[in-house]
Each structure stands twice: as structure tokens, then as C-alpha cells.
Simulated scan of single mutants.
Amino acid sequence: MVVAERKPIEEILAMVADFKKVLLVGCKGCVTVCCAGGTKEVGILASALRIARKKAGNPLEVVEHTLERQCDPEYVDQLGPMLQENGFDAVLSMACSVGPQFIAKKYPIQVFPMLNTTFIGGALEHGVWAEFCQSCGNCIIHNFGGLCPIARCSKSLMNGPCGGSANKQCEVSPEIDCIWHLIYDRMVELGQVEKLRNVFPIKDWSTSRDGGPRKIVREDLKL
């Protein structure tokens, strides 16, 4: 899932300093799962903004709404009647960065991101998420026991560890395990350690973000 975290309240207050009425929009997708932008988080931020502005003697009206997803036009379209009738100064999006971009494309109103989108990852434990995928566009984890050296190695090395790791830990980020140590243990477990002798060529990054903004077209799904 896409993992994100809310911007500092001071930064958000600066964004809305000149506004009197805003629409705060959450998302029931990934940011709900990582507890950053769901209905509950919308309510918390709305209350924080109201309290801070009331305390400053400059009340702010915050209308709360949560969409099923902000990355699908069919759900973003649901904001139309609200924006036409209520005289909002701006929309505050509590989705990953795709959400505010979709809203900004659709409506002639200022849109502000309330979250910082961080990575594609998964939960290690309750309240702890880690990066597992770099969206490189050419998945090869089957060669490494199902583990990704692109996203989970600090140097994205594909042919073994760098030599700087110690005690199974990464030299760049000592708080995390060296992924190549984990890959080796996994390949031993699978009885496939000899496969690690294969040398992989320099990665073609054209399928990643380095090749420009990407698009997938499924003709079988188009209307």
C-alpha cells in the first residue's frame, strides 16, 4: 500500500491562514490503512484546525468529507455538488499526492496536500510501516527468494552485499537488517543458494520513474 504521514500542524495552519471556510477531504484507501487520512484522521485534523484558529481569534469553518478513493475520477466527481453550493475557499486533501492532483485537475479551486507521501510498504507491527517496493516497473524478486534488493538495499545492489554491513545490519541504516543477509538466509532455506552465483546486468531503469511519468492502458477494461 501507499504509506503517508500527516504534515505538521504548523505547516497546515500556514496554508490556510487566509481562509475562512475549507473542505477537508479524506480517503478510504491506503491512507486509511496506515492511519493517516481516513475518516478518523479527518476528524482529528478538523478539530485541531478549528481549535487553533479559534484560539487565535480567527475562526475557521471546516467541513469534513471522506471519499471512497481520491485516485478515481468517479469518486472525485462526488465533490462537485458540495463545491458548487458551499462557497469553500480551498480543498484540503488527506490522500496520497494523487488525490489532490485529481481534485485540482477537476475543479477550479485551490487544493492543498495534508499528507506527505512516503513509500510503498507494509505493516511490520501495529503502527509501524516499512518500505518494500520502489515501483521500478520490472519485478525480479523471484530471483532473490521473494525479497527486493532494489527497495530494501540502501544502495539498491543486485549482486550481493556492499561489504560495509556488519552484524547483519545495513551500514547506511544500521537500524534495519541488511537485505542481502536476509536474501542469503532465504535462499539457503529454499535450497537455492547456488542461484546467487548468477550475475545480473546493470538494471534498466527506463521502466521506473527515471523513464518519465508512467501509464498503464488495459484495453479490455476501457469503456
Rank of each mutant, 00 (worst) to 15 (best):
R6P: 03
E10A: 00
E10D: 02
I12L: 13
K21H: 10
K21C: 00
L24C: 05
G26N: 14
C27N: 04
G37E: 08
E41R: 00
G43L: 00
G43A: 09
K54Y: 05
K54I: 05
K54Q: 15
K54N: 14
E64G: 00
Q70L: 08
P73I: 08
E74V: 14
M82K: 13
L83I: 14
L83V: 06
F88G: 04
F88R: 12
S93N: 00
V98C: 10
P100L: 00
I103P: 04
A104P: 03
Q110K: 15
Q110P: 09
T117Q: 02
T117E: 12
V128P: 01
Q134Y: 03
C136W: 13
G137Y: 10
N143F: 13
N143S: 13
G146T: 02
G146M: 06
L147T: 03
I150A: 01
A151W: 09
R152F: 12
R152I: 00
C153Q: 01
G163V: 02
S165A: 15
C170D: 08
P174G: 08
C178D: 10
I179Q: 13
D185W: 05
M187S: 03
M187L: 07
M187G: 09
V188A: 03
E189R: 13
K195C: 12
R197V: 01
P201K: 01
P201D: 02
T207E: 08
T207V: 00
S208Q: 04
R214V: 00
L223H: 13
